[in-house]
């Protein structure tokens, strides 16, 4: 039996270094989390499809539910808790008020390294 101890330990050290590299490579480079900016149109409207806190936490789930209900069930209208009706459409409803996609959506998504593929197909109708 050969003595493999040094090799094993060296291997472990390299592994730990690589595995923790994101931590020490980014040390001291912390950025504050950005806050999304509300567009004037959105503020003027005064309400969203759901309460703000809920949208903050669940907007991705809401959009996922919307797209499935629209595409697969042919249900295109959403009725919220206060009985208001909305067309379930990212481009034509959400962005109607949130006219500032870059400041409202992209800012946080970029910060959090979240790359939803919505925009591969869906468009910002305001963007010229």
């Amino acid at each position: 039996m050969t003595n493999d101890k040094p090799k094993i330990i060296a291997g472990l050290v390299i592994f730990v270094l690589i595995a923790t590299s994101p931590v020490w490579l980014n040390r001291g480079k912390t950025k504050e989390a950005p806050t999304p900016v509300m567009a004037a149109e959105a503020t003027a409207k005064g309400y969203c499809v759901m309460p703000k806190a809920e949208m903050k936490a669940k907007h991705m789930k809401v959009l996922d539910g919307w797209r499935n209900s629209v595409v697969r069930n042919g249900q295109r209208v959403y009725v919220n808790e206060s009985g208001k009706q909305f067309t379930m459409s990212l481009s034509n409803t959400c962005l109607e008020c949130h006219t500032n996609k870059a400041e409202f959506c992209d800012k946080c998504h970029v910060y959090a390294s979240v790359n939803p593929y919505c925009w591969d197909c869906h468009v910002d109708p305001k963007e010229k």
Binding site: D64, G65, N68, S69, R72, G74, Q75, V77, Y78
Partner: peptide
């Protein structure tokens, strides 16, 4: 998949 609850959707 996740769908919106059916009592919240319509045409």
């Amino acid at each position: 998949e996740y769908f919106m609850p059916s009592d919240q959707t319509g045409q």
